[in-house]
Amino acid sequence: MIRYAMVIDTKLCIGCGDCVVACKTENKVPAGLNRDWVVEATTGTYPNLKTEFRSERCNHCAKPTCLYACPTAATYRWEDTNIVLVDPNKCTGCGACIAACPYDARLIMNEGYVSKCTFCHHRVEQGLDPACVSSCPTRCMHFGVLDDPNSTVSKLLASREHKALLDETGNEPQVYFLT
């Protein structure tokens, strides 16, 4: 399985929300729904607080519980990669994937089927970065193949401290945050 990963530098992210707008424009996500979002995370003990902005989305886990829970095989992996997609023609809207995702990264479209971030696989197919990565004004977002040691994402993860969200779930999320 080819592992695509997204690496986001929280030292550079300013929480502008351009990634959110780019996703909505590229994927025609209806008003009121989001495939990606920005989280302002404040941690610490007052007055010693630290704030970081995180552009979050589906983590395209290497072990995706949503995929395992889908009873109709509507959730599937794109072309032997970790990119998890949903086939609207197979999705009944039963909600099993929503209940199974620890990141609450899925959404219900107005038509009733479940949707989510696709890592813009239609752009990846053409050798392009996902829309959110391309539009980032601070260049804090990076995308590439993790299995390639010479890719930008591999080099960044090899050289910088990083974390993935809810690693303890065992889902092996593939969106990393440089800290």
Binding site: G32, W37, A41, L107, I108
Partner: peptide, 10 residues
């Protein structure tokens, strides 16, 4: 954690 995400039923 503060966000503006507000997906219905999520």
């Amino acid at each position: 954690l503060i966000t503006t995400r507000a997906n219905p039923k999520i």
